[in-house]
């Protein structure tokens, strides 16, 4: 299990940032895909923006973007139909066989 998975299992969303050139490596990895420098693991800001969404069995799922570059899919808790570009936050994440992310719109 990678450090990313371990952190996720503990409920923390971390990303890999190159110690040399500061690039965020996403999907996460141990080495930078620009300069091959070693990465450090740091928390991802939990506030992001909605890129796209759909719905399955009355539950929204979406692509959310954090720090203007890390895009990840998760479920979206909302009682209203969201708008693209809307602010959201990560309220839960975990690892249960698959990575799991739960987001919530900021105004809800």
């Amino acid at each position: 299990m990678t450090k990313f998975d371990e952190a996720l299992k503990a409920g923390k969303f971390v990303c890999s940032e190159c110690q040399k050139c500061k690039k965020l490596v996403w999907p996460p990895n141990d080495y930078c895909n620009r300069c091959f420098g070693k990465v450090k693991w740091r928390p991802v800001s939990i506030t992001g923006k909605l890129v796209e969404f759909s719905k399955r069995n009355e539950v929204f799922f979406c692509i959310a973007e954090f720090e203007n570059q890390i895009r990840v899919m998760g479920s979206l808790e909302s009682t209203i139909v969201p708008t693209i570009g809307q602010d959201l936050k990560l309220i839960k994440c975990g690892h249960n066989g698959n990575e799991e992310f739960v987001f919530q719109l900021n105004n809800s």
């Binding site: 990313f4 996403w26 999907p27 990840v72 899919m73 698959n98 992310f101």
Partner: peptide, 9 residues
């Protein structure tokens, strides 16, 4: 492999 897809693989 694609962790960016979360639980929606």
């Amino acid at each position: 492999w694609d962790k960016s897809r979360g639980q929606y693989k």
